[in-house]
Design a protein around this nucleic acid. Structure first.
Lengths: 239, 239
DNA sequence: CGAGGTTGTTAACTTTTGTTAAGGTCCGAA
DNA sequence: TTCGGACCTTAACAAAAGTTAACAACCTCG
């Protein structure tokens, strides 16, 4: 639902009624993508930006030898390519990891927002900056965390992001991602992902079954991950 | 010089005379930092954004065990923390890797730009998006490139970025960075950096001496790196 | 001039991570 | 029902990368 975008924005700053109306007026047609389909093709020049309503999507780059690196995961309430409004050409692809339901925001309308509504412009700018902030955190995890910490950090991030759009049920959330995809997220081999998951499970830090993650002791997982949610910028500020 | 910022912007889109005036009016006081000093402290709430005029700076995160990861390098003409204008609180630090000379843009004035000049707002937004684009490229390099390719990719990136601000002399550029810092950029050990450099040197792909990098065969280096400069978004577009 | 620090280099050894391959489970389609 | 595919798991082995330590080159500072 579009409510998760509104909620993503409201978490970070108050929206006036006209702001909220402008957000709702932004979107035109719906789309559905099957798992495995490209939502946005690398190299293309989108004329819409895509809001993910439901499903799991990923930005990714392919190398010549077929290796794939995922650079960010997107859940409901995320724009998967808001940056394309400014960048014009996609320097990566976006793939639906599960069946996805989306809404398209024509760049023409985004342009109008930037001409008429400075506050909302800054809020959209903010959303793209949070993506960048997540990128930095991933770089840190890939470069300087041991793999257990990296995995724990990723789970913490997804927990907080799902919570922000109210998708935590109990201490669990649906996270239907295969170990092979997880390997492309973390930049390691699938075997290594598998072994790391075994360890986290046997340490009692993680229960992951049937596409659902349960965190028995969030505090312990955060400690292992050295997790600090500051980088997700959930604080409400005047922006 | 502030000219390198103007040049960074003009590469990506035409600036009107009022745009350019507004850019020049943005800045207030100068600052100088010694190598090793923090330009921006992690966790702080800057009231200015900092344009780097001269020198080499890095955004970084420290982990509890003292490990450091650098998430992006900045050269003359880059804002090192333009994103802080919107994000408000720094989720990482910025350090001067060499002596640095900077100009401060008060957030108050940036705010005025966003209220009054939609085009310039989008151009500043663009600069932060290019940072994000570089982040994604680094994630890909860290996760899925062999270390030789990673190193080659980094050198290509710096070559193109220095060229955009006219700091390439011959096929060389000043890049006074120690191998230890390079290790924090690439997320590997200093010994590994050293061995990789030896290989690139003996392959004739790189001459690196006294803080100056020479690329004898850019084409060969780009091939090794699978380098595609699209992600730096040098194309001039109507934005 | 000499002491001490920074940086780069190298080697020996350890640890982490990847590769390959095989087997198991589950599930949907023929 | 059976077949095949997707996914998970495990093991043996290979390769990549880290750690530690020693030393050399160079520079700065007293």
């Amino acid at each position: 639902m579009i409510e998760s975008l509104i909620s993503n924005l409201r978490t970070r700053d108050a929206l006036t009624a006209p702001d909220e109306d402008a957000v709702r007026d932004l979107f035109q047609h719906e789309n559905r993508f099957r798992a495995g389909e490209d939502i946005v093709v690398q190299g293309s020049r989108p004329v819409n930006s895509t809001l993910l309503l439901e499903g799991l999507a990923a930005r990714y780059r392919l190398l010549e030898d077929g290796k794939r690196q995922i650079t960010v995961l997107h859940i409901g309430g995320d724009f998967v390519d808001l940056h394309a409004f400014i960048l014009k050409q996609m320097d990566h692809g976006v793939i639906a990891l599960t069946d996805c339901h989306t809404l398209a925001a024509p760049h023409r309308r985004l342009q109008a927002v930037t001409e008429e509504n400075p506050h909302l412009t800054r809020m959209f700018w903010l959303l793209t900056l949070i993506d960048g902030s997540i990128h930095r955190e991933w770089i840190t995890a890939m470069g300087r965390r041991e793999i257990k910490g990296h995995m724990a950090h990723l789970i913490c991030e997804m927990f907080y992001r799902y919570r922000a759009v109210d998708l935590i049920e109990g201490q669990t959330f649906r996270f239907p991602i295969t170990q092979a995809i997880l390997a492309d997220v973390m930049g390691v081999s699938t075997v290594h992902v598998n072994k790391t998951l075994q360890i986290l499970r046997s340490d009692g830090l993680l229960i992951w079954k049937d596409g659902r993650v349960q965190i028995p002791d969030l505090q312990a997982l955060e400690t292992l991950a050295e997790f600090d949610p500051l980088y997700l910028h959930f604080q409400s500020e005047s922006r």
